[in-house]
Design a protein around this nucleic acid. Structure first.
Lengths: 181, 181
DNA sequence: AGTTCCATGTAAAAGGTTACATGATTTT
DNA sequence: AAAATCATGTAACCTTTTACATGGAACT
């Protein structure tokens, strides 16, 4: 079963959510290690519902706005737990910037400097947001047993982004030394 | 045009290669930031050939073993260079281990400790190989103007893998503290 | 009145993996 | 003689993105 299923089951194991809310959570909290598109999410929600791993609750409960809130079932929860026990299989990383860096001796060093500055800007922002998250979470760390787990994934993001930024600085320095030649 | 095209063009910009050799280089040198399958590579080589970005040389030049060596054309080279000038677009990272970590409060801490130890082992090996690469390259750094560029991508790999390993150690420590409870 | 956000969805295309087939060569 | 590696390729399948359509609600 594709991974999208488990992301959905995992998020629904915490609380009932709509497809739209699931997408937002992935975009914000999982941004630096996961992504999903609507074209993937909505059909998968339907499939999970058909299989009985999730059910619909309070369709148009109070609001008239069309929204479908899903809840995980016992079947869904045990499927999720059995997946958690399986060995980690897929680890896919594809960084175009490294591909470009590798071949960038073919163009002016300034070209690559531009790319890396963009990369740097993006990951400075990511790190900034993660640091905020961490602070907020540290303040309420004991309120929920999940919090220390969340902190671990925030820490991962921080470490990775710091590595990205270190590399960017060093690489810009190197490329600037190439310009002078 | 999909990224596979540019990986191929990039590698052929250094020297003529067969599809099989391209695959091996990607598996070894680009392992920690890129991957390609044969099902993707061979058809793409055909397409690039049809478009005139690469040509076939010395098909069965000396050896009788069926092998097709490709060479980049001027068209291919200028296509590659124009891509190098375009802003970096896709940066896809999908780490199942973080997904599992996020939801792992649902299972025994020992389960996740097992997963992380595997992860750790894998990236210790990666780092070991990168350190070897670095040493070899440092010894011949002045022999080719490309070498300092290659060193930059090795450095990236080292930084990322060190971040992975730091995180693994800290996270195993945290999970072990959860076991005792 | 217009824009933005909420919210769901689909169809087509693109991207990518897996499993298989084939056969030569080299190593054990 | 068997196993591993070199080498190419394809077809089926799965996964994922993109672009579009729809319309209500909230904000400005």
């Amino acid at each position: 079963m594709k991974q999208t299923n488990y992301v959905i089951l995992g998020l629904l194991s915490e609380s009932p959510l709509t497809g739209y809310q699931i997408k937002k959570i992935i975009d914000i909290r999982f941004r630096y290690f996961w992504s999903e598109s609507y074209g993937q999410l909505y059909p998968t929600l339907k499939e999970l519902n058909q299989k009985g791993f999730i059910t619909i609750i309070e369709t148009e409960g109070e609001k008239k706005r069309s929204q479908i809130t899903y809840q995980i079932t016992n079947d869904g929860l045990s499927t999720l737990c059995s997946w958690l026990g399986q060995p980690v299989e897929r680890e896919s990383v594809r960084l175009e910037i490294l591909l470009k860096m590798y071949f960038s001796h073919l163009v002016e060093p300034t070209v690559m400097i531009g790319h890396i500055r963009e990369f740097q800007k993006k990951h400075e922002q990511d790190l900034f947001i993660l640091d905020l998250f961490e602070q907020e979470l540290q303040a309420i760390i004991d309120k929920d047993p999940i919090h220390p787990y969340v902190l671990r994934i925030i820490d991962f993001g921080q470490k990775i982004n710091r590595a990205y930024l270190d590399w960017s600085l060093e690489t810009i320095k190197f490329l600037e030394s190439q310009v002078k030649k």
